[in-house]
Design a protein around this nucleic acid. Structure first.
Lengths: 103, 103
DNA sequence: GAAAGTACTTTCTGAGATGGAAAGAGGTGG
DNA sequence: CCACCTCTTTCCATCTCAGAAAGTACTTTC
């Protein structure tokens, strides 16, 4: 029933949630969507990559270097487990962090 | 869309969730349910009290001193808001939860 | 071709949180 | 008087996180 600390940090939770929804996302898009600085996103991206939760792809758009983030299978599994754990913690209160399947 | 840091810390999230479900709970019950040390619970209890989220009641059972925790209205509102923010962050990922089976 | 810009990454720094151990505090029981 | 119960507080060592600034590696502009 532990809450994975790699995912729990608010900024990383938002990054991982975004990637779980968007599949692959550009560095600048994530940075601007979350409203964080370059250095913060770079560091959290590296942390997620080090955990094996995110794959970082580098390439070019025209001649400009770009970076994309994408959840790995492991990252998706960790996110799912994280949300399930959250749900177990919160559910007894009658509230829910995710929609009911029959919603 | 901020995640209230007073609630977000894993141990406090568990305390607050427990209190949201149980209304009022004894110090020892919370400590044993969460598996934390006396000092940790005492400190988090004080932090939640300082934030106005939890009321700490002291009394006796027989001749032994006991402490009870209870969510305040403010604490309940903060918890509700916290869970709603969590939902907003997590919801786009499309995760859902299967309702509890009975039995 | 020097300067400025793009797209990050890394380093430096400093504040704050967290938890365990251990010592306290205040009362009860043997 | 000493041990025990129920916390509270202090001490300590670790970790994390954010922002600023400098660095890397090119590309574009003047």
């Amino acid at each position: 029933m532990e809450l994975d600390p790699v995912i729990h940090a608010p900024t990383r939770l938002q990054i991982v949630s975004l990637l779980a929804a968007a599949d692959e996302a550009e560095f600048a898009f994530v940075r601007d969507t979350l409203g964080v600085s370059d250095s913060v996103l770079s560091k959290h991206g590296s942390a997620l990559e080090a955990a094996g939760y995110v794959a970082v792809r580098k390439g070019y758009v025209g001649k400009r270097p770009k970076t994309w983030f994408k959840l790995t299978g492991k990252g998706r599994a960790a996110f799912t487990a994280y949300v399930e754990n959250l749900q177990r913690i919160v559910a007894p209160s009658g509230l829910s962090v995710v929609p009911d399947e029959r919603g």
